[in-house]
Design a protein around this nucleic acid. Structure first.
Lengths: 238, 238
DNA sequence: CGAGATGTTGACGACCCTCAAGTGCAGTGG
DNA sequence: CCACTGCACTTGAGGGTCGTCAACATCTCG
């Protein structure tokens, strides 16, 4: 068997690598987590990670690809609750309750790590458990800050500001994991963006086109390039 | 000194009581937390718990009264980020970073418990620490779910739906801590509600008045009574 | 009691949603 | 290779909701 260099490199982009480091492992191959981690598992487009209402047990660390979360609202309508990009942890908001309250599935082909959260306690030493919990607590708090910031953007602002904020948000999250932040692919449909932001799909399209005509961004289908980050940012300062 | 019955009773309404239980204490007086907890500390109206940018160290468990969080946005404008009601934990979203990113102050006279988060690790036994971390992780995840739900309400809906959702949200949070959920006081100003929801203050006022004229709620100044919960809920199912 | 903060009401206009028609593109089968 | 079908996306016209502005009322507290 050849040395596991490739997955080691991939692992650096993902939250699991951080988790491994917290465990006191210096080797990035995460070997001593193998009992509770399903590593580098491929997922197909539209493959569901977890269903709304099913018992909560696993956290999913996105290696590559991206995911979308949907939830059922009052009146049985559905709503896009969020997106997970490479390196992020899907399912962390389920901690502390019996069942999952979103349905999360892959937007494109990719790979994930599956971490058996329920088995953490029985598997790790007390010291290891403290470190993993500390790490997850930090991640959950980070997630909450992220949501708080996003919540503060919706409603008050114009559609243009919301779209700009959405793009900057995706860019900064990609940047945080070492991916190119000025040229990337929006894996979700225009409709999903609209649903997520609470706008009409037509407004999303018109606004993107308008930003393009002013040379702030360049879009071709799902591929986006941020041409003038500072002007895009200054749109948010109202 | 007389037995500490009153604060023991108060303590049942607050997150600290839960924290004490996780620590394995059967007595609700939280006595063995005293080294890291400042208990039942009175706060005046407008008294600041923590400032944006100052080092993060404490969690604040609201005994009585309520708090509001503000944050500085791009362009030095300010925005209401959230409210904390009795029994909730202010500051939990700061975990994992060096500094606080909101300014949080009391909306009215009340009392709080201050928990020295930084000193948790050195003070508690490994087993106790695991339990406290587990509890805080659950609280942070709960907070994230709450924010996710709130985020999903803003933007898509009409002003009326947002106001209705806001009222139901406050009511359910009060209900969760054993307070009356159909008749309560809105401790924050109309302007703060508007800012929080991303609406104009005038819209908040007009919408509340409209709900009142349809006998869904009754308002006198800051005192609100929910007259028809089911119809109020059905507004959300669009 | 007076002054500033907070809350209320009305008129008008902009932004964005709705509805509807049309375009481009991917996958399928002939 | 080309129609065909379905879906995502695009574009246009019209109307409703809510923000802005301004005047006024009420509350709070020294």
């Amino acid at each position: 068997m050849q040395p596991n260099n490739t997955s080691a490199v991939i692992c650096r982009n993902c939250a699991l690598y951080q988790t491994a480091r917290v465990l006191g492992l210096e080797t990035p191959d995460c070997s001593s987590l193998n009992r509770i981690v399903l590593r580098n598992h491929p997922v197909r487009k539209n493959e569901v990670l977890y269903h709304e209402g099913e018992p909560f047990r696993y956290l999913y660390l996105i290696h590559s690809g991206s995911c979308i979360s949907n939830a059922t609202m009052l009146g049985n309508s559905h709503r896009v609750m969020g997106f997970y990009l490479p390196g992020e942890i899907a399912g962390i908001e389920n901690i502390g309750q019996e069942t999952c309250n979103h349905t999360t599935y892959a937007l494109e082909k990719g790979s994930i790590c599956q971490l058996d959260f329920a088995a953490l306690e029985g598997t790790l030493s007390e010291n290891e458990l403290i470190n993993v919990q500390k790490y997850l607590l930090g991640s959950a708090a980070h997630h909450a800050r992220q949501l708080q910031w996003e919540r503060s953007l919706t409603g008050l602002q114009t559609a243009e500001q919301q779209i700009a904020a959405f793009l900057m948000n995706i860019a900064s999250r990609l940047d945080a994991r070492g991916f190119p932040a000025h040229q990337f692919r929006l894996p979700m449909s225009r409709e999903a963006i609209a649903d997520y932001l609470g706008l009409a799909m037509e407004t999303v399209i018109r606004t993107l086109k308008n930003l393009q005509s002013r040379n702030l961004i360049d879009i071709k289908a799902k591929n986006i390039e941020i041409l003038d980050e500072s002007r895009l940012n200054s749109l948010l300062a109202s």
